[in-house]
């Protein structure tokens, strides 16, 4: 069967490009509303709280905790089977933002709920995806 084996890159919007530019420099940027001070994730064209277009960016610490996770062992798209097993997680950043990510640099059985993690970047076709790894004690 003829499967598309191309690994996907993020389909960006003009207002999210700054986020991806930041990752190239090792910065995890969070969009902020300069009027109502909301922290916004994922980046929007206008603030989803007050509809202001006066938006800026702040750099996050890159520290987070694992809200939940699921480790895949099979039945993923063929383009991802070479990476099995891998763990997808929701992580809560210190800044109050929740992201989907991968947990790396540890065995799946060592991943725990509420575990502290920190951002690392995984390069794919010029994009640097924010992955997270356990914080070393």
């Amino acid at each position: 069967m003829d499967f598309d084996m191309t690994k996907p890159v993020p389909e960006t919007q003009p207002w999210s490009e700054k986020f991806w530019e930041g990752t190239k420099e090792g910065k995890l940027l969070i969009q902020v509303c300069n009027d109502c001070k909301s922290k916004i994730f994922y980046p929007r064209k206008y603030c989803p709280e007050c509809w202001s277009g006066n938006l800026g960016w702040m750099e996050a610490s890159g520290k987070a905790t694992i809200l939940t996770f699921s480790t895949a062992y099979g039945m993923v798209e063929p383009k991802f089977t070479d990476e099995l097993p891998y763990t997808i997680a929701y992580v809560d950043l210190e800044e109050g933002i929740r992201m989907m990510t991968r947990i790396v640099e540890c065995k799946p059985e060592d991943i725990k709920f509420d575990m502290p993690v920190e951002v690392v970047y995984h390069e794919r076709e010029g994009f640097f995806l924010p992955y997270f790894r356990p914080v070393k004690k």
């Binding site: 690994k7 389909e11 994922y42 939940t68 996770f69 993923v76 991802f80 891998y86 989907m100 994009f127």
Partner: peptide
């Protein structure tokens, strides 16, 4: 989401697994 979820290799099964 094709920007914030799909590139990580998620699936419906995984989304259900997270919950």
């Amino acid at each position: 989401d094709l920007q914030w979820e799909y590139p990580y290799g998620t699936t419906y099964n995984i989304i259900m697994g997270l919950m």
